[in-house]
């Protein structure tokens, strides 16, 4: 295979970009630590079938509320289920909901933000709806949606997406508003570019950084939100191991078996911590204007 000048230049550019990214990430401890911790959780979720020492749903009445031991690493819960295996299994739900909500919110909120920021005609009505949604306490809105739609994982994702979309839309909208009158957009407009082309080619790439930053926080919010809903009994169906659900069940045995409360809570805090750290780091790295040093 012949090496053309073009491909060589491309390779060099790619290489230097990669190096640059590596350097930036390397300099940004938050991204490094947060990202590694998140990878660890992803690994746990993916390797769950290997890691789990017991069937997380198997109830063994004879083995109820056992303290942590070599057999049950984190003890057993009120139904005699292995807490360690349930915590591992619970990572899957948390990540599934988190990724689902972050993706859906980015797409829907990003789209709304682009449109409202650039097309003044739709701005006012759509943003009033967003204001209305934001005036609900998020958790109440989510509970309401769950009551209408029923206890399904997909509905949890839907409810939390509705809750988180307005803020995403606002972030993207404010970036677009700042760009709408800049020269390059004016130039694109005057050269007869279609609306979609301007949005997609000129504006979208500029919103990506704040969008990614916001998405990482939405991810964290969604993990917390799912746990809160499950804790209140309005989340995923109870047969799906969920950290929030485990915490809810643990309350009955607080004085007797505190490990049923400590383990899922620690896993939850750890995950959200990793995501917040990553979000902070990404913000510093990608979005200097919002930088909080």
């Amino acid at each position: 295979m012949a090496i053309t000048a073009d491909s060589l230049a491309g390779a060099i550019e790619r290489r230097s970009r990669w190096t640059q990214l590596r350097l930036t990430v390397g300099r940004n401890r938050n991204v490094l630590v947060g990202g590694s911790l998140l990878l660890l959780i992803v690994a746990v979720a993916v390797l769950a079938p290997v890691l789990m020492t017991h069937d997380p749903s198997f109830q063994d009445p004879g083995e109820r509320l056992l303290a942590p031991s070599s057999e049950y690493l984190l003890g057993t819960d009120g139904s005699g289920r292995d807490v360690f295996s349930r915590v591992v299994k619970g990572a899957q739900l948390s990540l599934l909901v988190g990724i689902g909500v972050a993706t859906a919110t980015s797409i829907i909120g990003g789209f709304i933000g682009l449109i409202t920021g650039f097309v003044p005609r739709v701005d006012a009505p759509v943003m009033r709806v967003m204001d209305g949604l934001m005036a609900f306490p998020g958790i109440i809105l989510a509970i309401g949606i769950m009551a209408v739609r029923g206890a399904e994982i997909s509905n949890v994702i839907l409810a939390l997406t509705v809750v988180n979309t307005p803020r995403m839309a606002r972030v993207v909208r404010s970036v677009v508003l700042g760009l709408a009158n800049t020269q390059f957009v004016e130039a694109a407009k005057s050269s007869g570019c279609t609306l979609w082309r301007i949005l997609g080619v000129h504006l979208l790439p500029n919103t990506l950084s704040p969008l990614i930053v916001q998405a990482s926080f939405v991810f964290a919010e969604a993990v917390l939100g799912e746990a809160t809903l499950s804790f209140l009994g309005a989340g995923a169906p109870p047969e799906v191991p969920s950290w929030g659900g485990m915490l809810s069940e643990s309350r009955l045995f607080l004085s007797q078996a505190s490990w049923t409360m400590i383990a899922p809570g620690a896993a939850l805090t750890f995950t959200v911590f990793a995501l917040n750290l990553l979000g902070d780091g990404l913000r510093d790295m990608l979005d200097p204007r919002l930088r909080h040093r």
């Binding site: 964290a220 746990a227 607080l254 004085s255 805090t269 750290l277």
Partner: peptide
């Protein structure tokens, strides 16, 4: 502080109940 905003309120609440109320 990041840990503080990452900790779910209900988990913190349960820990406080366990320590200061139940124990």
């Amino acid at each position: 502080a990041i840990l503080g905003i990452s900790m779910p309120t209900f988990w913190l609440g349960l820990n406080l109940i366990l320590i200061f109320a139940v124990t």
